[in-house]
Design a protein around this nucleic acid. Structure first.
Ligand SMILES: [Zn+2]
Ligand SMILES: [Zn+2]
Ligand SMILES: [Zn+2]
Ligand SMILES: [Zn+2]
Lengths: 157, 157
DNA sequence: TATCGGTTGTTATGTTGTATCATCGCCCGA
DNA sequence: TCGGGCGATGATACAACATAACAACCGATA
């Protein structure tokens, strides 16, 4: 499954699925998906566009007056550590992970026109990355692959 | 040529070469490598580690008291537009380009131990990127490929 | 019940990047 | 030679992104 960014779809269903899966995974792992963390995950998932931490904060603050930057960053850090969201480095923004629960290396296609980002998981591409780093004798810890441009939909219009 | 980050070398020579090439390219292109821009390029090149804009500012201010954040960001923007430096998105930092003057798509190997970053140009990897995006019908404008980990040298130690 | 560790509250600050408008200096055309 | 246009720089302020440090809370468990 990849984010259905280019097609109309029942996004409430996306969100529900993501939250349900997150609850299951956190239970399995014996880590706590607290109300704040769950709410932040929901806020991130409400958009298929990567969302900035301060936008999350604005939304969170509507239901949680005590929310401050650390509140949000702690929740985001937890969700990243659990593989439930990703940070898009080139945007300083965060996106729900469409592959939570599976080990995966993903790449992102970021549309500069409509702002959506699609997470793709391309094995051949990842293999090419590994080959390149192996050649340099480099021990990989984290891969950031973010491709900006124009999505198919925006090219049409 | 790639950055010789892993090996001792005459780094003054690196810097001189980069500056000389930059002057030639800017002359060819009829754009102005002003004293500020050239100084910023030199500051970036003085390190094989990506350097933050405010670090550049601190250094620049030693010889140019009027320097302010916009001074530096304008110079960095110019140098990026001319392909003389790259921004490392995952570090919010800047690195001299080892392939200036050649059209190229590059990737970065960033060592978390020693802080150096190496620019590599891997055609097979880039082709895999293009294949992946083509499959999605995505029109690429910019590719960010940044791999963090441990360089060969730091693995030994 | 005492304590321990993880979560959250709270305040402040650090870091990175832009907006806006004024000024300067050079080139070129009248 | 004058003066307009334009790109570059000066200068001030602010926006956006992120973390430090310590206090308070709260549930689990010994
Ligand atoms: Zn993912
Ligand atoms: Zn689009
Ligand atoms: Zn380059
Ligand atoms: Zn290293």
């Amino acid at each position: 499954m990849t984010n259905q960014t280019a097609l109309p779809h029942d996004h409430e269903h996306c969100i529900d699925s993501a939250l349900t899966l997150a609850r299951e995974l956190c239970t399995e792992r014996a880590v706590k998906l607290t109300p704040i963390r769950e709410k932040v995950l929901e806020i991130v998932w409400r958009s298929h566009k990567p969302v900035g931490a301060y936008d999350v904060l604005d939304t969170l603050a509507r239901s949680h007056k005590a929310a401050r930057p650390p509140t949000v960053y702690r929740a985001l850090d937890f969700l990243m550590a659990e593989g439930l969201i990703h940070k898009i480095e080139s945007l300083n923004a965060y996106l729900g992970c469409g592959e939570a629960g599976h080990a995966h290396e993903s790449q992102f296609l970021i549309c500069r026109t409509c702002g959506t980002a699609e997470e793709i998981v391309d094995g051949a591409l990842d293999a090419a990355l590994d080959a390149a780093t192996k050649r340099s004798g480099f021990a990989v810890e984290r891969k950031v692959v973010e491709i900006a441009g124009k999505c198919r939909r925006c090219q049409m219009a």
